[in-house]
Structure formats: C-alpha cells, structure tokens
Design a protein around this nucleic acid. Sequence first.
DNA 1: CATGAATGAGCGTTCATTCAT
DNA 2: CATGAATGAACGCTCATTCAT
Lengths: 214, 214, 214, 214
Amino acid sequence: MQVTGDEAPTQPPDPTRSVAAAARREQIIAAAVAVLAESGYGRTTFERIRQHAGISSTRLISYHFGTRDDLMEAVLIDVALQAQRAIATRVAEARTPTEALTARIEAQLGWIAEHPAAVRAMYEISMNARDAAGALRYGVEASAEANVADLEPILAAGQRTGEFRAFDTVLMALTLKSAIDAATVRLTRPPRLTLDECIREITGLALRATRRDP
Amino acid sequence: MQVTGDEAPTQPPDPTRSVAAAARREQIIAAAVAVLAESGYGRTTFERIRQHAGISSTRLISYHFGTRDDLMEAVLIDVALQAQRAIATRVAEARTPTEALTARIEAQLGWIAEHPAAVRAMYEISMNARDAAGALRYGVEASAEANVADLEPILAAGQRTGEFRAFDTVLMALTLKSAIDAATVRLTRPPRLTLDECIREITGLALRATRRDP
Amino acid sequence: MQVTGDEAPTQPPDPTRSVAAAARREQIIAAAVAVLAESGYGRTTFERIRQHAGISSTRLISYHFGTRDDLMEAVLIDVALQAQRAIATRVAEARTPTEALTARIEAQLGWIAEHPAAVRAMYEISMNARDAAGALRYGVEASAEANVADLEPILAAGQRTGEFRAFDTVLMALTLKSAIDAATVRLTRPPRLTLDECIREITGLALRATRRDP
Amino acid sequence: MQVTGDEAPTQPPDPTRSVAAAARREQIIAAAVAVLAESGYGRTTFERIRQHAGISSTRLISYHFGTRDDLMEAVLIDVALQAQRAIATRVAEARTPTEALTARIEAQLGWIAEHPAAVRAMYEISMNARDAAGALRYGVEASAEANVADLEPILAAGQRTGEFRAFDTVLMALTLKSAIDAATVRLTRPPRLTLDECIREITGLALRATRRDP
DNA sequence: CATGAATGAGCGTTCATTCAT
DNA sequence: CATGAATGAACGCTCATTCAT
C-alpha cells in the first residue's frame, strides 16, 4: 500500500523493516483515529493529529505516511485489519459452523462495542474521503464486501456439515450483515440496546434463519 | 463603521419584502442541496455552489445568507420545512388517527423517495456541521425530536378516540421513528425494498403495534 | 485565457470590466517580469513578486491570476502582445513591402534592446514552465510560430507587388527569424554588436536575400 | 558535536581511496545528467535522481556530494572535464596547428552531437544555479573562458610556425567560439544542419580566417 | 439588490538537510 | 560505505469573509 515514486516524501520508510517506524506509525494512527472520532473528517488536520499524538512537527506525519489521503487509507486499513484479526481469532476457536456463526456475530458486535472511536473513524473516512474526481473513495460496496467475505464461508461450511439448511449463502450473508448493522445502530442510538441484548437478538435471528428445518 | 448586524455585511434581506430575494435564496439553496448531495459537506464550497447556481459571484451567497454555517442552517431548515409541510398536508386530510398514522408514514417515506438529494443534503449537514468548539451542531437528538414531534400528537389523539390502545406515546413515537429510519435505509441499500414494500411493511407494523387488543 | 470553474480563486475578476483590476494586473505583471529577469524562474515566488510590487499580501496575486502557472502564462501573453503591438504599429506605417520588412526587423531588434527584462522573462518562462507531465509548456515551436506569423505575409505581399523575387515564403521567414535571433544574441554576448550594427547587418541581409535579381 | 567539515555530515570520501565510492559518484552524476536534461533544473530533485539511479535513499546522494549545489557543481565539472578530455585527446593527435584547429572543431561539435543530454545538463545548471545572493553561479563568462582557453594556444602556435597569419589570438578565439556556438544551435533547431555540414562550415570558416594571405 | 476588490488564516506538500548510528 | 529517523522552512493554494460602493 506504500506509494512509491514521486508522490512519496523523502525516504519513505519501509514499515516492515524497522520496529521504531512501525511504532511511530501506530502512534500516529491512534491519534488520527481519536481525532477523526472526535472532530470528524473535515477537521482532522495534520496539526490536530500532531497535537493529539504529542509529536513535535506535522512533518513527521507526512514523513511516515505521505499525503493526507495516504494517511487516511493507512488508518482505514489498519483499523479494518485489527478488527478482522480480532474477529478471525475468535471464530478460529469455534469447532462447528454453528459455533463459528455465533462467535462471528459476538466478536463483531463485541469489537464494535469496545472500539467506538475506531468504528467512528472508519465511518468518517468511508463517508468523506473522495478521489480527485469527487467520487467517494471507499464506497459502501467496498465495506459491504469486506464484511461479508468471511461470513459466507461459515455458512457454506454449515451447509456441508448439514447443520444449516439449503439457502443462498451470499444472500444470507448479506442479510445477516444488514441485521448486524442495524443492531450496531441500536448500540449507540435510541431505542438503545445493551451489547448483550444485541448479541442475543442477532444470534437468535441468525440461528433460526440458518438451522435445518426440523 | 457600518451600522449593521453581526452576521453579515448588510443584514440578510427580509424575505417577505422582496420576492426577488426569496427567489434568489431558493435558487442558492437548491444549488447547495445539489452540491451537498453530490460532493459532500467538505467539498460544498461557495465556489461550487456559485457554479451550480449559475450566478456570477460567491459574494451573492454570503450576501443573502451571511456565513457558511448560516447557509447550511438555512438549507437544513428549508428542506426540513418543505418535508414537514408536504407531510403535514397529507396528514391533515386524514379523518381518523388511524388514517393519520398511515398517511404520516406514507408521506414521509414517499417524500424521502422523491427527494433523495434533499435527504442526503440534510444528512451531510447534520453529520458534519460543527460549532466552534468542534461539537456537532445538529446532533442526532435534534433530528430525532423533529421527526417525533408530529407523530406523538397523532398517537395521543388515537388514544383519546379509543382507536389505539394504551401505551407510552413518546416511546411509541420513537419506536416508529426508528422503524421508519430502518425502512429508509432499505430504500437505498441492499437488501433493497421498493417504496411500496416499505410502506406496507411499516404501516402494517405501526397499525399492529398501536391498535386496541381485540 | 482566464480559467473558469473550480481552479479559479474566489471571484476571478474579469480584467476587461474594471480598470482598477487591469491596473493591478499590470502592476503585478511588471513586478513578475522584473523578478523573473533578475532571479530566474525558480526563484520567482509569489512572495518575491509581492515585495517587488509593493503590495501587502501574496493573496492579491492569486486573487487576480489564480495559480502560479496562470500568472506565468499571463506574463508571457502580456509581454508577447506588447511586443507584437509595438512591432505591428511600426510595420503598419510602412508603404511598401520593402519598407515593411525593414520596419519589422528594426522594430523587433529595437524592442528587444529596449526591453531586456521582458525578453529575459519570456525566456525564463518558456525554458522552465512545465505541465504536470513534466513537458515544457511553451516549447520552442510555439515561439517560433509566433515570431514567423507576421513575417510571412510581408514576404508574400512583396512577391505580389513584384518587389521581391520568387522564393518559399515560409522558409524565408524562418531563415530571417534565425538571423534575427542570432543578432539578438550579439546584442548581449560577445563578440558584441551595437543595436545599429545589428539592424544594419540584418536588414542588409534581408534585403539582399529577397530582392529581385537584376 | 561531530568533528566534521562544514559541508557534509561526513566529509565527501576521497575518490582516490575507494573505487566503489567513485563508481557511486559516477552513477549518481549520470542519473543527475539524465534528469537535468529531461526535467530541467527546477525539477531535478534528490528524489528524482534517486529514482533514476535506482538507489534506495536520497541520503546516499547527500552523503557523496553534500548539498544540492555541491552536486550540481560536481556534475558540471565532471561533464566539462569529460568533454575537455575527449577534445584534448583528439587535438593531441594533430601534428600541425592547422590540423589541431580542425581537430578541435570536429571534436567539439562531435562531442556535442554525441552527448546531447550532457550538453543540456550543463546548460540547465549554468542558466539556473544561483548563489545565496541570487546571482548566477556559473555565468556566461565562465563558460566562455573555459571554451576559449584551449583554443588560443592553438592559434598562437600556428602563428609561431607561420601557418597562420597575424591576428589577435584572443579575439579570434572568441570569434571561433561564437561560430561554433551558432553551429551548435543549428544542430538542434531549424534551419537544421547535419553534423558533417556543421563541421565543414566551421572548419572552412576557421581555416580561411586564419591562413596566411597568399 | 448586487458587485468588486482585497485579505488573513490555515493547510497540505515538497525539499533539502541534519543527527544519529 | 550506507542508512533510518527526524525536521524546518517555505511555498502555493483554498476558502470564507470583510470593506467598499
């Protein structure tokens, strides 16, 4: 994802080569997430990030990330990967597709509840970052795909083991994603539900929707 | 030292005094709505609005609306009032609370379906406009209140006539609002529903939720 | 040549509409010419121009001209037009093609000798201004064409009147241009010639090259 | 507090000590020449040179050459020496001053025709490099002197042997230099001449100008 | 009702350079 | 011999806004 060539600042550091650079990047990304969540995309300037990160110069940001757009992309990728990893870890512990489905829902809702700022930051970026032509850079489609990509295999596995009934796995994945999104909103906006209520609600729905007809 | 108000070089002209001024204001607001919907809040600059409106100078915008924030507020109010009026008109034709409730839902969903740009513009403003301190100027609460304000009287009226059962009218109004919001999303994002399906869904839900137990 | 639309600063002033704006533009262009001649293209910054023009803010420059490239183009056009006009005026006074040819050479060499800064400024721009792709924006070809455009009609007219012999007018125009360019160099670099010497040299050459064979 | 010289963090390594360092320097100079010729002085940044040279970091450039100005000077000197050497070698083969004069002209024009990028690079540097005060660092005078320095001895020798007539050798050298410069332009810009034509032209001129009157 | 002219503040970006190993 | 990390300074540009008519 690193830009090479002309656009990059002098000496773009290879993040994989140096732990110090990686740490700096993490520090800056964390600050960017906080500012995005608190102040919104439009007010997330290098200067505000600099203040929040407690570093001396905004130059340090462009040194590590290049342009503002590059930084935003780095934040988006970083946060998405973190979420993905957290969820994948918990799903990996499941022994059956049913458990996996439950774990997946719990993990996602749990992660969202635990990282409201990160979620908000992703939202700000995906709703505001635009390319030169003015089109949204990270459209709804992209995030939809991302959220569905790991759900569909679980459903397919469940059908293979016979735990789940026959249905279109892509469509079901999309439906579950929508349900989770709806529940997510209920975590933050009235009529509010607690995390446990959300999880219970969605897992109940998912299990009923996928289980073999008796 | 000019003897003018605080917000503009010459105070925004009294819209009742001049039809020309009112027309200009409408023209600019319409352009602002279009730009907001197409380019997002951050890229909705005076210059872009000027182009879209086909007027000669951005000065004309600040002349009529004062600051950018003032313009955004004017857009928000204008659009909200328009929606409110359209809905109120249709609700006013209803003869019973039940009819009013149905009309209210149909009218709102209908208006949303017919004015996607306006809806998007309101969304952009409410999600991005911030005050000097950095706080969202038109929080979720504000729009919630607005959307609920005309719903609650209908419910109360239904209870008085005995058509509706006993329930907390505020809570029920909020619940219905949430349901409508959810349906709204289904108009634009998969799994998609048609306007008619949305209306049927929500009115069915509302009627069942409010009617007297048999 | 005025950029319209997005790239323009707020309220690009129409230079034809206001004498004040035209005066400001002239003032800024004059300062730009001086800085270009003195400091070269790379050091011709808004700030240096601002100082030289004795104006308060660099913003005034971008207000009137837009981007730096736009300014440079404006300078180039302005200077070229000025030269063109000065030359055309003197050529217009000529009664015969022979006189016109002489006048043309005298006028161009005279203008160059009188406006060394302007000549240098044009040179700096044409040798340094590049487009986004990195290619020279105002190639040698462009200036060659410009310098030849008014020469060729004179030659053609002389052939019609019978004062000049038969030759390819385009080729002859190019040749004369080359001779003038060479003479120009001799005005500034050793072995140096005076303006009068240059004029005598080139007009002598031109007249001999074009006159009817006896 | 490092005990180093003024210009670089660690003093530019002694080129005689290490062949590796010399090779690096050559590599970087070659890249710089290419970038100068292609992109012009203003766009010849460390980053672009780095890309062109295929090295990892711009730091390597400043390590070997110090500042940007130092690099440019190194390029200028390197290219000039190369040209000088090529020309001197061919002149050394001549047995008489007349042969030497011919060889000198042929060699210079030949070198120019064979190394357009190097010629262009020298030109870019000499026309753009400036000192802190803003004055051209390598003025026209400098290059004139350089080009004349080896011409004058040839002429003087010819006078001593009696092959050449009496004339002011410095003035004649300058004149010949001007003629060569003019021919150089004719290699690249219309009305164009081939290399052979140029050589014939200039050598013809030179021999006629210097030979004893019969 | 409309416009022209001017302006200040802030932002991202670029570039060479320096301090460390 | 080479590199990584950091940094300061300057620049062009954008935007909303204000002072005049």
